[in-house]
Amino acid sequence: MWRSLALAAALGTAVAAHAQQEVEVPKTPGWELIMRCVICHSVEIAVQQRFGPQGWSETLDRMIKYGAPIPPEDKAQLMAYLLRHYRDPAGR
């Protein structure tokens, strides 16, 4: 766990130091949490998905299992953000 957080912190520094690209996400509550996703992949990977609550929850759980630094209280906020902007009404 410590190792993954240390790694995430190191990568976060790399991201900040080598910022080359800008993309836009809607600035509603929780938008800063997207930074936790872009430690490992570009934001397009996230925002081209459309899920319902189950789909987003499972996706975030998988990312957390892979080491995404998203504690439970942040998961709820990130879920709300993703469902507000990237929801498929017909999706799971």
């Binding site: 080359q20 800008e22 836009e24 996400v25 809607p26 570009s42 925002v47 990237y86």
Partner: peptide, 18 residues
């Protein structure tokens, strides 16, 4: 390429990376 997030007004848009 690293990503810098820039907030956008309004609804979700499809980003256009370089």
């Amino acid at each position: 390429a690293a990503t810098a997030l820039r907030p956008a007004a309004g609804d979700a848009q499809t980003p256009a990376p370089p």
